[in-house]
């Protein structure tokens, strides 16, 4: 793949549920190592767009390309293989409650990547170290705080060596005092060169860490630019209205 090719390309993406049009032709590119931050009012389609990027939602039309490979064509086996390269972090963590922390991080390594147990274990411990939770390896998810659970979920995704990480409102379900620990892990990831597409309301984090901010409304990208451009001098009226609502 050419170094100039975007890691993730979303092309003319449409999503309809019956008569309800959620995405009306979204185009978005995320370069290698870039952190793109998506903001917008609820119902703007930003989460749906993110979920189309690994086909948890099936796009009605349009394409999503990962390093040049179209994830919207091909067999379900192809899709499973591509999903290994796309890490996803959910709002509600979705840890497996019947497995320990290290069991959560190991499962897909063992069953999807077919890594031997010892290798998967070592990789899991390395990833848990990265998110500061190596000492919780044998704990159960129910014994962890929300912030710790989300960091385990990040470790679980990272253990598969993804090319891109999708974050779907990763801090929205957290108590305010726990948000910082998750954002710190995300910032570390960004600094380590991970390609990231983040849907979130953490404007402070967007200012600090995002390369580019995208404002979505009504199923389209209304405006995109650097954090300074979007937060400092938004061009579109809808962006201005949204930002004054969330900051006011």
């Amino acid at each position: 793949m050419s170094p100039n090719r975007p890691m993730l390309e979303i092309v003319a993406l449409e999503k309809r549920y019956g008569d309800n049009v959620v995405l009306r032709g979204v185009d978005l590119r995320v370069a290698r190592g870039e952190l793109v931050f998506v903001i917008g009012p609820s119902g703007s389609g930003k989460s749906t767009m993110l979920r189309c990027c690994n086909r948890l939602e099936e796009p009605t039309a349009g394409d999503v390309l990962l390093a040049g490979r179209n994830i919207c064509t091909g067999s379900s086996r192809d899709l499973d293989r591509l999903r290994l390269e796309i890490g996803m972090v959910f709002q509600n963590f979705n840890l497996y409650p019947h497995m320990t922390v290290v069991g959560n991080v190991m499962l897909a390594q063992r069953k999807a990547l077919k890594r031997p147990a010892a290798e998967a274990k070592a990789k899991s411990m390395e990833m848990l170290q990265l998110v500061g939770l190596a000492h919780k390896a044998e704990a159960w998810p129910a014994e962890l705080s929300g912030g710790q659970q989300q960091r385990v979920a990040i470790a679980r995704a990272l253990a598969l060596d993804p090319k891109v990480m999708l974050f779907d409102e990763p801090t929205s379900a957290l108590d305010p005092e726990l948000v910082g620990s998750v954002l710190k892990v995300m910032k570390d990831l960004k600094d380590a060169g991970m390609t990231m597409l983040v849907v979130s309301h953490e404007m402070g984090f967007a200012r600090e860490a995002a390369d580019r901010v995208v404002f979505m409304d009504g199923g389209v990208v209304v405006e995109e630019g650097s954090p300074d451009e979007i937060f400092g001098a938004p061009k579109a009226e809808r962006t201005r209205a949204f930002l004054s609502r969330v900051s006011g």
């Binding site: 999903r83 959910f90 979705n94 497996y96 999807a112 679980r156």
Partner: peptide, 18 residues
């Protein structure tokens, strides 16, 4: 079972049966 459990599995490349 929460739908998110299935999504977490599928999103990490696990097939339906797994």
């Amino acid at each position: 079972i929460d739908k998110g459990q299935w999504e977490a599995g599928r999103a990490t490349g696990l097939g339906f049966t797994t």
